[in-house]
Design a protein around this nucleic acid. Structure first.
Lengths: 191, 191
DNA sequence: ATAAATAAACTACATTTTGTATGTTATCTT
DNA sequence: AAGATAACATACAAAATGTAGTTTATTTAT
């Protein structure tokens, strides 16, 4: 297998990085291909040699975040159907958004919560929902599994995003403690 | 006070309506001012007589939804600091998204959850957070009020949006019942 | 019902941005 | 060191934007 041409790696990195920087200043839509190229000191024709348009560059940006989150969540070795599993998931999720803080803030500031939410929901949804499928502790639940999943995913993500924006008023450990209170021992909510 | 010129009302309505229709087909960004005008049978120069750009039209669209939600939530006469208040809030919220279903679906399909979320979060956040300020039943809570608010708002909105997208697999009454299970009697989560 | 007001249509134009194509120069790989 | 190829420079056609000036049609107010 051949190593990728250094020039290609360098150009793509710098374009990626420049997009990130520009998103701190303006909406993604306000960012023109020429803006990226000017700031990156890359010729515009070179840009088009790599991407068909700016949306492709953004897609790469998003995919990178998704992959990172997916990788992070895989670290969860807890296979129990208990609260511990979900709390561990949340911890890994917080680790991830903390690590990618710069990226998430960039897309949140000027692009509304939009893109962020979708990235995270996609991944978490897939993970949590599939786990819930096998969680027979909620067989007797009066609430459909999918609703339970949406409920807690929405809750955790919303708190997480606020935490990032707030500039970490609380420590990650604080947050996990709060979630420990907020999430019931019995996810099935059976009475 | 003079009545608004009929021509103006007519044109604005048709532009608004056309934007909504087009958003069912493509991304907001893919929609060109000329697309709107062609489909609306309105001259492009007329468009610019009303709005500086398509973003201004979208802003109006969003504002309309916000106002509608604000109006809906005001119907809550329950002033207690109990679970009833929050459940009533949720009911009104569900009424709202059901009524504005077409609009919400339009912005969700091609524009990712983005805009939707922001509209709703803004309004709900303002409402719930300010109510929580006066809720002294959670004075003793180990969890900050703002976190509690973000948690349940994210949860409810995420479930609500899924409900819309799913085409109402459950009735509104079902949903309210589920929320009744999912939301604890004691919001403070004190042990 | 008519006149004055004004919105909408029509037309034209300068500007920006996009996406593509082509030849040259610089850099990397083997 | 030679061949491969990425990046640069330049040019161009097409699309879309935003503005301006003129004419036509509709509405409001008398």
């Amino acid at each position: 297998m051949n190593k990728k041409d250094l020039r290609v790696v360098k150009t793509q990195n710098i374009l990626y990085r420049t997009l990130l920087d520009l998103m701190k200043e303006k909406t993604f839509e306000e960012i023109k291909v020429s803006d990226i190229c000017n700031q990156a000191l890359v010729n515009r024709s070179t840009f088009y040699a790599h991407y068909n348009d700016k949306y492709e560059l953004l897609a790469e940006f998003i995919q990178e975040l998704k992959n990172s989150l997916i990788g992070e969540l895989k670290k969860n070795k807890n296979i129990s159907n208990t609260k511990e599993y979900y709390l561990e998931m949340i911890k890994l999720f917080l680790d991830h958004i903390e690590e990618k803080r710069e990226s998430y803030l960039a897309i949140m500031i000027h692009n509304r919560n939009s893109i962020t939410m979708d990235i995270i929901y996609d991944v978490l949804d897939h993970n949590i929902t599939s786990h819930l499928q096998q969680d027979n502790s909620i067989d007797e639940s009066p609430i459909p599994r999918s609703i339970i999943a949406k409920f807690y995913i929405g809750a955790v993500v919303n708190v997480g995003m606020e935490w990032l924006k707030d500039g970490k008023t609380y420590t990650k450990e604080d947050l996990i403690l709060y979630f420990n209170y907020l999430i019931p021992n019995d996810l099935s909510h059976s009475v």
